[in-house]
């Protein structure tokens, strides 16, 4: 079945390979990036939601 489908479209055989490569590159890229990320920047980003100090007035 797979072969029938692939044979009917010129060049589609390369599609899954390209998809896998893109995914792999993206994944590896993301991993490399996060390991090289500097601490102050990570701290800045992760604390973004806490910067607006909306506390209920009753507390």
């Amino acid at each position: 079945m797979l072969r029938d489908v692939l044979n009917s479209i010129s060049g589609i055989g390369i599609f899954p390979t390209i998809a896998l490569l893109i995914f792999f590159a993206l994944f590896v890229g993301a991993i490399i990036y996060v390991f090289r990320m500097d601490k102050p920047y990570e701290k800045l980003m992760s604390e973004l939601p806490l910067k607006d100090n909306s506390a209920p007035k009753g507390e």
């Binding site: 990036y33 990570e42 701290k43 604390e47 939601p49």
Partner: peptide, 21 residues
């Protein structure tokens, strides 16, 4: 969750990898 717990997310790095994947 960070708002309710009043502390930052455990790992911002993990969130990047986890989002794209």
């Amino acid at each position: 969750l960070p708002k309710a717990a009043n502390r930052p997310i455990f790992s911002y790095r993990l969130s990047i990898v986890h989002f794209w994947a």
